[in-house]
Every structure is written in structure tokens, then in C-alpha cells.
Design a protein around this nucleic acid. Structure first.
Lengths: 334, 334
DNA sequence: TTGATGTAGTAAAACGATTTACCATAACCA
DNA sequence: TGGTTATGGTAAATCGTTTTACTACATCAA
């Protein structure tokens, strides 16, 4: 039971392959195919359940109607949700998404780009990591649409959509200060990506602007790929040794580890300790007390990414690079 | 800057396309190409960074080295984690995964299968829904490897890997009974899939075996696609009107809604109320008190799925259908 | 009558690989 | 000597589309 080909349809309809192709691609009118033939062919296609072979189509046209999405870790709820939203929106416009996780590993990221390249994806949506500059530049040189989200590689001239990470942590710190907190800690990671540094800068700037000292011992940088045990341990050390009364977590998984650490120490959030997490997570809403979070506008990010990609795909001419920074929202819970 | 083709390499090396192809595919020895030529060609390939066009390759060979993964919702942590594991394992064996969500919508699921078909994926991993029988049968008729996971469509002769849902809820109920609970409720969904019915049957059987009455008013079936608000409301009604002292939730997202309902009602889990959730979630571990859960063996499921798929892909001959049921683990927290 | 224009459609090249069938030449044996 | 086998390689068909360039006929205006 081999699949039907366009040739089978042509034979059945007693017309040429060309004619069938024109009809399939909606060019029948413009190529002046008669109404009678169009109907006949369409009927045969309908009845036989013929579907064009996309591989052959891709080979000939050079594009695949597939958009490649490269994220850090698809099982992280932030990326999973964005991926789902992007998938939905792309799907409605006739594009498929194929996605993959880099695990913050440059080698894997490079391999993925190569893989997507050999699959001729039409465009790339990437949450990039340092070290990927050359590979991305190569894509740009081939005039492939590339769009970064969540993180940016500022030295590259490309589109970027992300949240205002700087202001997000700036506001978080100010919110702590308004509450009367004096010793505000930051738990962040050591991956060297723009979004993380911006969160760090916002933290520092807010402290300084409010005449607080920036104290190095209140900042913990967790090594990215270490296992959760170790992370919890480090956070416990921070929590035990300091007189701190507020903690800002720079990612949702760090906040989750932090909450576990608090639980193990039997420390409660409340009168003498405030917490804000970055990126929402079901666990934060359910926690008692509720955990305040910085929420990124997932829906808008996804929508903007897709819009930019599609406008680039449709207009052959190169569009100006846009850096779109969307505001975050601080959700205070208790 | 167009990408290089095999022809470019052939010209550069001053040999035929055939020769280059043999070398790329490791058939040089067997086709008696001299060592000198092999080295020369390999060097040129290396230096030029040539990568074969997978689309052309797929068109010719009829397979794509891509496995299609169809799940209910990729942003659900259960599926996201499984997807990530499967992706990893497949990747190591030279296969790519492309995945997509059905949203429990038959139309969308059918479209996805069609889409994957026209993309010539080599195999399908599906968490199926009722109504997909015909489409899957069509795949089987074309001798495409298909493997179900999490859920099954028992009338189809295909491979299935899943957890022992019946025993999982049976044990959960027994655990409640041992605790001394008398009125055990079940919150489940109205989607008609085997895994959900099994969980329901296990619940009933455990009650009956322990000489409890099965009471219909203690079971709530939540409509699948309704928004969370409505779900929470229904669960609140259950919690308020009944004398119940234990609740088993049949999925993780129902449990999360349930916890939110409890929070809104200001009811605490403890002396007069026990809860068990299906499928783990970070929120359950962090919750105070910790929420007991039924854990599915994600790693084993992923590994088994990939193993079955690969053995089917490598042996041309049809393998016997296997139904692999893996045990779950009840994690008691407090 | 002629040249232009429109209508209806087709043949064949091209996309970039794999694979089958084949061609030389040399070597070897009986 | 002639037949077989091994060595080293290539030409061309093929996969299923899209697209360009063409044919053949009819109609119409000048």
C-alpha cells in the first residue's frame, strides 16, 4: 500500500502532472485551467485521499514550512508553555514547529543548528547561549530568519523579543524595600547570558539607588548544571549564615530549590523573610503562603515572536532588526 | 552563499558523485574505492563543511530519521518530561523527534498524523485518544511502526507502554483505608481513554474488596476542556457538601486545581483530610504538608518506548505486539 | 490577411541525494 | 589462449514535486 503520487492522480484524471500541480497549488485560474478540469481533478484528489509529499515539495522549493525552535530545556515550564503557545500560533498559519533542548551545552546547540539546517527549516527561534555567535551569524549570512527570545546575544544583528529583566528585578528589590526589608539576597546562576546579567544589574542598581550597600556575600551564583541536591545545600548555607530578610530568585527552578531549602530548614516565609521568584510556576500559587513572582508576558512573547518570524518569511526583503522588550508584572502574593 | 551539494564536492575532488556518495555512506570499502580517493574526498568534505541535504536523502531513501511524538499537551509536566527523555534517548541513536500536542481534539490529532505522514516520519509515538483508531490502523497498514504510551486503544494490535493505572489507584485507596479513612472521593475527568477508566476501576475495586460501598456522589468527573475556574468550583462543591475525608485525584492538573480549591475554602490537609495525586509535580513536594502522589516510572517508560521503536525500525520483519505495563510507586508525604 | 492576445494545457528540467547496472583494466589460473 | 575474478570507478535512473518554456488553437483588431 504505497502512498499515491501526483502522477497517479494525473493518470486517473487523464491530464498532465503539471495541471494537477497547478490545481493543488491554487494556480489553476492564473494558468487558465478550465473549470471542468479543476473540478474533475479536485474530486479525484478528494476521493483518493491524496496528500502531496512534503519532502519532494521541500526539495524542489527549498523551504519546508517548518520552524525550528531551540530552547534550553523543554521540560522547564517556562519553555514548555512558550513552546506550546508558539506551536499553536504557528500551526494556525500553516507552519510546523520542531523543537529541541540545548541543555545549555554549546556542542549540542551547534549540532541542533546543523541538524535544522540540513532539514532546511525555514526559520529559527532560539533562546541562545554564549558561544553560538558564529553559528547564528552563518545562518544570517544565508539570509535565514533568526529570532532570539528570552535571551539575546547583543553583538549579533538580529531580532530579539524578551522581557524587561532589568526592571523586573529592580522593581522586585524596591518592593522588598517598601516592605521594610534591609538585607536583600539574590540567588542566581552562573550562566553568562544577557537575561541573567540584566537581572543581576537591576538588583544592584535598585540597591544603590535606594542607598543600600551592595554586599557580595548576599549573592549566590549557582553553577548551572549541578544537581538539585547541591543547589539546595548552597542555598541553605546562604539562608543560615546571613541576617538576610528577603531573597530574590533569578529563575523559577532556583526558587523551587530555594523553597525546598527553606522547608528543610523549617524556616517560614512571613514576618522576617520575604521571597520573590522569577517566572511563575504552579507551585508558587499553591504554596502557603503564596510566593510572589515576576511574571513574563508569555502570550505576548509568543505572539510577537511568531509575528516577526512570519513577516520576515513573507517579505523577501530584509527587515530592520527589532529589539522588543516587553514589560513584566510583579505579582504579590501572600 | 548557497549550501554546498554533493556535486560541488565531486567536482572539487575530481571524482564522480557516486564515489562521493559511497564515501559519505561508509560504503567505500565494500565498493572498492581506493584509500587515496577516500582520504582526498574526506578531507575536502571536512574542510568545506559540507553536510548532506537530508531532504534529498529522505526523498530518495523514503525515510527521514525522524520520529513523530504526539501527546495531549506538551506544556503538561508529565508529557514535557517524557518528551525530554525520549528526545535525549532518540538523539543519541541518531533520531530526531518532532512533537506536537493534540489538546485532546480528534481533528487536530488526525491532522497531526497526516502532517507527519506527509513528512515521512519513520515511526510514531502516540498518546492516543478515542476516535483515532482508523487513522492509526492506516499507519499500521503501511507498516509504519506505531507505539502507544500512557494510554492505549486496546482494539488495535500495536505496542503499548504504560503504567499500571489500575493498581496505582487500587493501592492509593487501600492506603487511605489503612489510614482509617472512610469516605474516599475520586476526582477524575470525563475523557474516555483507557488509562482514566482503569484508574476509575481500580478505585471501585479497592472499595468493594474492602467492603466499602461505592458511592456515586463521591466521584466527580470534570469535563476535559473547561477552564480552571469551573474545575475549581466543581471541586469546591464536592469538598463542601460531603463528609468525605480523603480525595484521590486522577491527574496532576486536577490535583493542582483541587489544592487551589482547598486553599480557597481554607481547608487544610491533615487529621481529617488526606489527598493523593496522580503523577508527580514540583508543587506537591513543596506543598505544606507534602502531597502524596502516584509516580509513574518516567525514565523506564521513555527507555522502553525508544527500545521498542528502534527494534522495530531495525528489523524489517514485523515484531509481535507487546503490551508493557510498568509498576507505579506510591510516594507518601506529609 | 496578419499579427497580437488569450485560452488550455503539456514536456521536460530541476531540486540533491542513493543505487543499480555497467565499464575498463589487470591479474590469475588452467 | 581464453575465461574468470578482483579492483576502481562511473553513468544514469530514480524519488515526487514545482516551474519554465513551450505548443496549438481560437479570437479579434487593423
Amino acid at each position: 500500500m504505497k502512498a499515491l503520487s501526483i502522477k497517479d492522480i494525473a493518470v486517473k484524471a487523464n491530464v498532465s502532472i503539471t495541471t494537477v500541480s497547478f490545481i493543488i497549488n491554487g494556480k489553476a485560474k492564473e494558468k487558465s485551467i478550465s473549470e471542468a478540469v479543476i473540478e474533475k481533478v479536485e474530486k479525484i484528489i478528494e476521493e483518493s485521499g491524496y496528500k502531496p509529499n512534503q519532502i519532494a515539495r521541500s526539495l524542489r522549493t527549498g523551504n519546508s514550512n517548518i520552524i525550528g525552535l531551540i530552547v534550553e530545556d523543554i521540560s522547564n515550564s517556562f519553555f514548555a508553555k512558550i513552546a506550546r503557545l508558539i506551536e499553536d500560533k504557528a500551526y494556525k498559519r500553516g507552519y510546523k514547529i520542531i523543537y529541541s533542548s540545548t541543555e545549555n551545552n554549546i556542542g549540542k546547540a551547534q549540532e541542533l543548528i546543523n541538524l535544522f539546517k540540513t532539514r532546511k527549516v525555514d526559520a529559527y527561534i532560539i533562546s541562545p547561549i554564549k558561544g553560538l555567535e558564529e553559528d547564528v551569524q552563518a545562518l544570517l549570512n544565508e539570509d535565514k530568519p533568526v529570532i532570539f527570545f528570552d535571551r539575546n546575544l547583543p553583538e549579533l544583528k538580529t531580532n530579539y523579543v524578551g522581557a524587561d529583566h532589568f526592571n523586573a528585578s529592580y522593581q522586585s528589590v524596591e518592593s522588598f524595600i517598601k516592605e521594610g526589608r534591609k538585607n536583600i539576597a539574590l540567588v542566581t546562576t552562573d550562566i553568562d547570558v544577557q537575561q541573567i546579567t540584566e537581572r543581576f544589574e537591576g538588583y544592584k542598581k535598585a540597591l544603590v539607588d535606594n542607598k543600600f550597600d551592595y554586599k557580595e556575600e548576599l549573592v549566590v551564583k549557582i553553577h548551572f548544571n549541578q544537581d538539585e541536591e547541591a543547589t539546595i545545600k548552597e542555598i541553605k548555607t546562604l539562608l543560615e549564615n546571613q541576617t538576610l530578610d528577603a531573597v530574590l530568585f533569578a529563575t523559577n527552578y532556583l526558587a523551587i530549590s530555594g523553597l525546598k531549602a527553606l522547608k528543610q530548614l523549617n524556616k517560614k516565609i512571613g514576618a522576617d523573610l520575604s521571597v520573590i521568584a522569577y517566572d511563575d510556576h504552579e507551585a508558587f500559587e499553591l504554596h502557603t503562603p503564596g510566593i510572589s513572582t515576576v511574571q513574563q508576558p508569555l502570550e505576548e512573547i509568543a505572539e510577537t515572536v511568531i509575528k516577526l518570524i512570519l513577516s520576515q518569511l513573507s517579505s523577501k526583503s530584509k527587515l530592520p532588526e527589532e529589539q522588543i522588550i516587553l514589560p513584566t508584572k510583579l505579582i504579590i502574593r501572600d
